[in-house]
């Protein structure tokens, strides 16, 4: 595999995000937003052919649909996945979603509902949407394009939309389902919650980023995973697939300023 020297941060993040789906097999994969969607397509075309993807609406396609491509150009459909079937699929755990919450806390809980008091929100956001059901039923990963203490907050998220590993959320005697969490890909690093007692760990740092920079931008303590290294650069083959999945370069708008993948010294 040849190494490409020129790549953007969003392309690095796509490659790191695709790794979240490794080993998933024959499940429905839902990447919400451009980078997660390209990442899911990259995983399917590179190493997880069993992944099931939709055209963004109600049909399954074996060839991932490139972003912004007209329905007339889609060669055909392999199956039907209306919302009713999405729910029955996700409730049996046969799905992996990658999402972008506005707040994330040390217990892997995410918030997209609102900021402030729920009864009279300071900022109304999207509402809980499918997060409660998704997070209790199947594996979830996150993609955060601007790693900061405003996202990775010190306390608990204002509205717990997706469930995580907080003991206080599970009263005694209640059978606690096993929460499955994949990874978080940010503009600084790759993280998971597989430390002791589900502590958050940094798995790899993007080129030019130090652990201290990540900790400084995170409101809760992080661990360095054993063998924490540098996030792998995209290969030429991976970049070729990414360009095919995103011919209009929508990924250029996903990270502010569309910086290069190797961070320049300040």
């Amino acid at each position: 595999m040849s190494q490409e020297t020129e790549f953007t941060l969003s392309e690095l993040m796509i490659v790191a995000a695709a790794e979240a789906f490794r080993g998933d097999g024959e499940i429905l994969v839902t990447g919400i937003g451009p980078l997660p969607r390209i990442a899911a397509g990259l995983a399917k075309l590179s190493f997880e052919p069993g992944l099931m993807m939709t055209d963004g609406e109600a049909y399954l396609t074996e060839e991932p649909v490139p972003l912004g491509v007209s329905r007339d150009e889609v060669p055909g459909f392999s199956g039907w996945m209306p919302y009713a079937r999405v729910f029955s699929t996700l409730w049996r755990g046969q799905r992996h979603a990658m999402v972008t919450p506005v707040q994330v806390d040390r217990w892997a809980q995410g918030n997209i509902s609102c900021l402030g008091d729920f009864a009279k929100p300071k900022v109304q956001m999207l509402g809980v949407r499918g997060f409660p059901g998704n997070s209790i039923s199947h594996k979830n990963s996150m993609l955060i394009p601007a790693h900061s203490k405003r996202v990775f907050i010190e306390g608990e998220v204002d509205v717990v939309c997706s469930v995580g590993f907080s003991d206080e959320r599970w009263p005694e005697g209640m059978r606690r389902p096993e929460v499955q969490f994949g990874r978080i890909v940010t503009d600084l690093c790759v993280m998971d919650f597989n430390g002791p007692d589900h502590a958050s760990r940094v798995l790899s740092l993007h080129p030019g980023v130090s652990f201290d920079m990540v900790q400084e931008a995170t409101g809760f303590p992080l661990l360095a995973a054993e063998g924490m290294g540098e996030t792998p650069a995209p290969t030429a083959e991976q970049l070729e697939i990414i360009r095919r999945l995103d011919p209009r370069d929508m990924r250029a708008h996903a990270v502010k300023g569309n910086p290069p993948g190797v961070r320049q010294a300040a």
Partner: peptide, 28 residues
């Protein structure tokens, strides 16, 4: 949760008072 709305409508359509689910547990 989007799925809870489905379950509530379906319970009403079936004439039962509620639908048991894990959706919502552990969340806000």
């Amino acid at each position: 949760d989007e799925g809870m709305l489905l379950l509530g409508l379906r319970a009403a359509a079936e004439g039962v008072p509620f639908a048991p689910t894990r959706v919502g547990l552990g969340s806000a």
